[in-house]
């Protein structure tokens, strides 16, 4: 780690310039948003009942989506990393599709799958559960990718050691594999949670837009943008603050070294 730092600080000026460019690309729009934010009415706007309702719903949906991603994504990552079933390369490609698919198309695809006339009609559209599923759909690849990479980086002999000590397959997974891959899972969870929190296109297409039920914060921002731009900017700042706080809070945790 230390060697890495040293070589980074002694890297050529070009690296610094490019890094600064990246920061400008991300930071400048953010700064623009903050500069235009209506600070005098901000507190009033973000504590409005409709804003709090959207925030609550957003947190609930994104956390629900994260839970769904963890429950389904970690086992999927394990299968991708560990099994040798033929066609796994195709599965891996399919898992990545939600990352490249325009979210609106993803939402439509979800309708074809789980809509009223879908392959598996679950009556999800226009429900909060539908919003959770839409968010999980776009967020899942982040968790699976990070977890699979973590699993591939593990020394499998620890599992052999556990087996020698009498641990069965499930026990090995829970007590040895999972704790060791936890940092990777946590990193993936932070990414997929952030993706779920900001989700817009798939949610609006699949779950619709109804305050208190499916109108998450990004949707509320979009609606507010059409009527009350200051409120929209205030809500955006709120969304920004929540995500930055959580991700910054997560960093550095979950490591045992």
């Amino acid at each position: 780690m230390r060697e890495g730092r040293v070589s980074a600080t002694t890297a050529g000026a070009g690296v610094w310039v490019l890094a600064a460019g990246a920061l400008v690309l991300i930071g400048l729009p953010l700064a623009g948003l903050l500069m235009r934010a209506p600070w005098s009415t901000l507190l009033h706007d973000v504590t409005a009942p409709s804003a709090l309702q959207a925030l609550r719903l957003s947190l609930a949906c994104s956390l629900g989506a994260l839970a769904l991603c963890l429950v389904l994504g970690v086992p999927l990552a394990w299968v991708l990393a560990r099994s040798s079933v033929p066609g796994l390369g195709l599965v891996r490609a399919v898992v990545l599709v939600p990352m490249v698919l325009p979210p609106v198309v993803g939402g439509a695809a979800l309708l074809f799958a789980f809509g009223r006339r879908g392959v598996l009609p679950l009556r999800l559209p226009f429900t909060t559960a539908g919003a959770v599923v839409a968010e999980a759909f776009v967020a899942l690849p982040f968790l699976v990718l990070a977890t699979e990479a973590g699993l591939l980086g593990l020394d499998r002999r620890y599992e052999e050691a556990a087996r020698v000590l009498g641990a069965g397959p499930w026990s090995r997974f829970v007590h040895v594999t999972l704790p060791q891959v936890a940092p990777a899972v946590a990193a993936g969870a932070a990414l997929s949670w952030a993706r779920a929190l900001g989700e817009f296109g798939a949610t609006i297409t699949f779950a619709g837009n109804l305050p208190g039920r499916t109108q998450t914060l990004p949707l509320a921002v979009y609606v507010a943008l059409q009527t009350d731009r200051d409120a929209a900017l205030a809500l955006s700042v709120l969304l920004l603050a929540v995500s930055v706080a959580v991700i910054a809070g997560l960093r550095g945790r979950w490591t045992w070294r």
Partner: peptide, 9 residues
Amino acid sequence: KSLELDVES
């Protein structure tokens, strides 16, 4: 059930 963001939706 939903207040769509434009009439097309």
